[in-house]
Amino acid sequence: MSYCVNCGVELSAGTKKCCLCDTPVINPNEIKDTECSPAFPERIAIPQSSKNKYAAIIISILLLIPNVVCVITNFLFTPELLWSIYVVSSSAMFWFLFVFPFIMKRKLPYLIVAVDAIATAAYIFIFYYYNSPRTDNWFWTVALPIDIVVFVCIAILIAFFSKEHTKAVSAIALLTSVTVLCILFCMIINLHAYSVIATYITMIIGISSFILLIFFIAVEKNKKLYSWLSRKFFY
């Protein structure tokens, strides 16, 4: 029979440390190697992953049916007009965004983001290829860079939020990413339209975000300010 020297509680026979405070149990009177049974078995019952995978397969099959019908109808009745490409590409886009993650055995968030980025770019490319005149290269100068910027930003945010942060730090991260995204969008669009790298329009967003960022950083660093604000704006 052992007691925790910190907590004063009696511990189960053979316990190596107190389960309340982790203090090691040293009892010279207790015979070593005595067979002690823990209160619970070691086996952790993790249920089989839900039937998401099966649901994903069923959704995939259901999605396939209208696509096949559309493709056959297209080639049978209007072979000169390739309208079924929009149905197929939209379905493929939906599948990659919403069904593909459930088919993966091990969830790899960066792989999902990469696949989504490629799927989105491919989807936009189809519209670009079939609808835009060859002289306009908006896909390469606007759509693709924005697609890359957005998904890189999502990947960075996933990496950042995989660890726990305070609310203020999380707000700073989100605000920074929104500001950076706005500036980059503005730069890409201006470069395409006017061939200049300009960020005039996003100045307003940038300045507002910058002020908010300074405020959040100040609140995060200065405990007195935080306490004063909590008192002043207590609701």
Binding site: C7, G8, V9, E10, L11, S12, K17, C18, L20
Partner: peptide, 26 residues
């Protein structure tokens, strides 16, 4: 974290009540 459990049972011990502990985290 077992802060609540620890303080709860320590409180009882201070009150003179005998406590025997077991856990699934041992």
């Amino acid at each position: 974290e077992t802060d609540v459990e620890r303080e709860f049972f320590r409180f009882l011990v201070r009150e003179g009540i005998h406590v025997k502990i077991e856990s699934n985290m041992q």
